[in-house]
Write a protein that binds this DNA or RNA. Structure first.
Length: 452
DNA sequence: TCTGGGGTCCTAGGACCC
DNA sequence: TCTGGGGTCCTAGGACCC
């Protein structure tokens, strides 16, 4: 890998006003962290993902990519392409800790940055104008720090907006050509003339937000290239892809992208999805599984200091069709028994004609804790004949009465680890006292409902 | 070859209120 | 008695991103 960046054709450092937006993307992030932690993996094809029949690749080292292994590829396909592939299950705590260090280095450059997942950030360099910062110099220095302090490689793109910054970072990276790895320039700045050139040569699929479904619709309309989108009537396009998508695509085709770098993006939902190695059959198995999901979600809500009014369940059947059910309560919940009560009522309203391969429980519509206390104690409706409404009322009662127990369990977990006690849901269902359970679980942690 | 788990945003229809 | 249109909230589903 070359130590310094090759630039664009002009080979000079633009002003902040010419290239205000920076995008950094860590190379093969999960796989790279695994290789750092186990140097015997260096040079071998490594992937992180699900190893079973239903697993997919979440991250592939460049060595694995030489064989055609890619993110989102089913693991069985990856093994067919690369029989020597080392498939690792993934350690998300580890990746999160690397991600925090990555963000720290970006923050040293500017506080105006926006993470996307664990391994990418956008940054707005405009506040650095007065300091005389030059974008390419800043990008080269940031890249050097990421390499020096984290021992991770990355690509950096610079452009007039998010659209071009992201396209640029993609072109800054190493690529595989005819089974050989070719180093990338590391830093790429999109000048005005490059913008025109890229827009003219790009296919629609390269645009942010155009996936397989939208690409197929556009192709039917004869719109295969970005330059085709620049000529299309937005209202006509809206009839096929929706108003928001049409406006976005036409703007992109003209090189315009009004998305700002948003520094504080509060989370809007928290959920837990699980694809089962063997599909579940029938409501009762699904309900049992949903309690563990509810516990994971409730724990996550509390660790983020959130209470949620909306609970959603999603069931995916063996034929890959999905159905969802959601309910918005008049109050918020963060208790596993409360979440589980609502989830069970929602799951009961689904017809199980097929086996269930995936179950998800999500929580959204967050509100402030103080706001929630009002709602919880306001009025007590009579018993209802609607099962969902009844579940909601049970859920509220649990949310209130389990508060003390829940806080206690959280404290124990904080001191002794997450598996030191069973979930409040398990304890409640079994009717066994918290204290007598502690010892057993402390010495035989059951990790089956651990988040990945 | 056959599709994970964490999320975000958009759309359309219905209920309800004014 | 029958009717309008806008705004907001909720639900279900779909598409996309990393």
């Amino acid at each position: 890998m070359r130590p310094f960046a090759a630039l664009n054709s002009l080979s000079e450092d633009p002003s902040v006003d010419e290239a205000p937006i920076l995008h950094v993307d860590l190379d093969a992030f999960f796989a790279s962290v695994e290789i750092l932690d186990d140097p015997t993996l260096a040079g071998r094809p490594v992937a992180v993902g699900g190893g079973g029949d239903r697993g997919v690749v979440a991250s592939a080292s460049y060595e694995a990519r030489r064989y055609g292994v890619r993110s989102a590829m089913p693991s069985v396909v990856a093994f067919r392409l690369c029989p020597d592939l080392v498939m690792l299950p993934g350690r998300f705590d580890r990746y999160e800790s690397y991600s925090r260090e990555f963000h720290r280095l970006v923050r040293d450059l500017t506080p105006d940055f926006e993470p996307l997942g664990l391994d990418e950030v956008f940054a707005d360099l405009r506040s650095l104008r007065r300091l005389g910062v030059r974008p390419v110099a800043a990008a080269v220095a940031l890249r050097a720090r990421i390499r020096g302090e984290l021992r991770l490689e990355c690509g950096v793109g610079l452009g007039r907006n998010k659209l071009f910054a992201k396209l640029a970072s993609k072109r800054s990276k190493p690529r595989v050509e005819a089974g050989r790895l070719v180093a990338g320039p590391g830093v790429v700045w999109v000048s005005g003339e490059l913008e025109t050139q890229w827009l003219d040569e790009m296919g629609v699929r390269s645009l942010w937000g155009v996936g397989p479904a939208t690409a197929a619709k556009l192709e039917k309309l004869g719109l295969n290239r970005v330059r085709d989108l620049a000529k299309v009537d937005e209202h006509t396009l809206a009839g096929h892809v929706g108003a928001a998508m049409a406006a976005t695509l036409v703007a992109y085709a003209h090189g315009e992208d009004l998305r700002e770098v948003v520094t504080d993006r509060p989370a809007k939902s928290i959920g837990h999805d699980q694809t089962f190695a063997r599909s579940l059959t029938g409501l009762s198995e699904v309900v049992v599984a949903s309690r563990a999901h509810a516990a994971v979600v409730a724990r996550a809500l509390r660790s983020h200091d959130r209470v949620a009014r909306t609970i959603t369940v999603i069931v995916r059947f063996d034929d890959l069709t999905s159905v969802s059910r959601s309910q918005t309560l008049s109050f918020g919940v963060d208790d596993e028994v409360a979440v589980a009560a609502v989830a069970e009522a929602l799951l009961s309203s689904i017809e199980y004609r097929q086996c269930v391969r995936l179950l998800a429980v999500h929580a959204s519509t967050f509100l402030e804790r103080s706001e929630n206390q009002m709602q919880l104690t306001f009025g007590l409706e009579a018993e209802s004949s609607d099962p969902r409404e009844r579940a909601a009322l049970v859920s509220r009662d649990r949310q209130i009465s389990h508060g003390a127990l829940r806080d206690a369990v959280d404290e124990v977990r904080q001191r002794f680890g997450r598996t030191a006690v069973a979930t409040a849901a398990e304890l409640h269902e079994s009717g066994i006292d918290v204290v007598t359970q502690r010892g057993r679980h402390a010495f035989g942690p059951d990790t089956k409902d651990e988040p990945r």
